[in-house]
C-alpha cells in the first residue's frame, strides 16, 4: 500500500487508478449492503407515520444514512467524481439486491451523487476537512430536497410541513454524512491503514 511513501499528513490528490475504482465500488457496496438491512426500519417508520399522513418523514429521517457513501468516498479518494461514483453505486446496489425502489433508486443515486459531489466541487477538491464535508452535506440536502419537491410531490405541501421535512433531512444528513463520516475518517487516520 502507498501509506509508507508519505509519512507527513499533507493533503494529496488521488488518481483514477484501477485500485481506487475498485475501492470506491467496494465501499459503496458495503454501505449499500449495510443500509439494505435497515429497509425494514424504513417500512416500520412508514407504517407508523402513515395514519397521521407523515410518511414522508420516514424518508427524511433516514435520508442521511442513504447519503453516506458519497461523502465517505469523496473524502477518501480525493479526486473529481469520486463522491458521485460512490453514492451512485451505493444506490445501484440496492436495485440489484432487490430493494423496494426499482428504477427510482438509480435516479435517486444520480441525484444524491450530484448532491454530495457538488460540495467537494465548490471547495475545488482542495480542502478536505470539516468545512468541505459540511459543504457536501449542504449541497446533498438542497439537491435531494429539490428533487423530492418534484418526485414525491413535496411542492404540494404547505410551508410549515415543508420546513419540518427540510430540517429533519438536514439533521439526519448532518449526523450520518457529517458526524459519523468524520468519526470513520478519524479511525482510518489513526489506524494508518489508508493515506488520507
Amino acid at each position: 500500500m502507498e501509506n509508507n511513501s508519505q509519512v507527513n499528513h499533507k493533503q494529496h490528490q488521488s488518481k483514477w487508478t484501477l485500485r481506487n475504482i475498485i475501492l470506491i465500488a467496494l465501499i459503496a457496496i458495503f454501505t449499500g449492503v449495510i443500509f439494505w438491512g435497515i429497509g425494514f426500519l424504513y417500512t416500520a417508520l412508514t407504517v407508523a407515520l402513515t395514519p397521521i399522513g407523515a410518511a414522508p418523514f420516514a424518508n427524511d429521517i433516514l435520508m442521511g444514512i442513504w447519503c453516506m457513501a458519497g461523502p465517505l468516498t469523496g473524502f477518501m479518494i480525493r479526486t473529481a467524481g469520486s463522491a458521485f461514483l460512490g453514492e451512485f453505486l451505493g444506490a445501484a446496489v440496492e436495485v440489484f439486491l432487490g430493494g423496494q425502489w426499482g428504477a427510482g433508486a438509480f435516479i435517486s443515486g444520480l441525484v444524491q451523487g450530484i448532491g454530495s459531489e457538488l460540495g467537494f466541487t465548490f471547495t475545488g477538491y482542495k480542502r478536505y476537512d470539516w468545512w468541505s464535508l459540511n459543504a457536501s452535506i449542504f449541497t446533498t440536502v438542497v439537491v435531494t430536497f429539490a428533487w423530492d419537491m418534484i418526485k414525491n410531490g413535496y411542492d404540494k405541501f404547505a410551508l410549515p410541513l415543508l420546513i419540518g421535512l427540510f430540517i429533519t433531512r438536514y439533521i439526519s444528513t448532518f449526523i450520518f454524512g457529517g458526524i459519523v463520516t468524520k468519526m470513520i475518517v478519524k479511525l482510518l487516520d489513526r489506524s494508518n491503514a489508508f493515506n488520507l
Binding site: 412508514t46 402513515t50 414522508p56 420516514a58 423496494q100 405541501f157 404547505a158
Partner: peptide, 20 residues
C-alpha cells in the same frame, strides 16, 4: 408488497396535506 408501504404513505400524506 414492499413498495406498498411508501406508496400508501405518500398517498395518505398527499391526500391529507397536499394542495393538489
Amino acid at each position: 408488497f414492499w413498495p406498498m408501504f411508501p406508496a400508501v404513505g405518500l398517498f395518505v400524506s398527499q391526500w391529507l396535506y397536499g394542495s393538489a
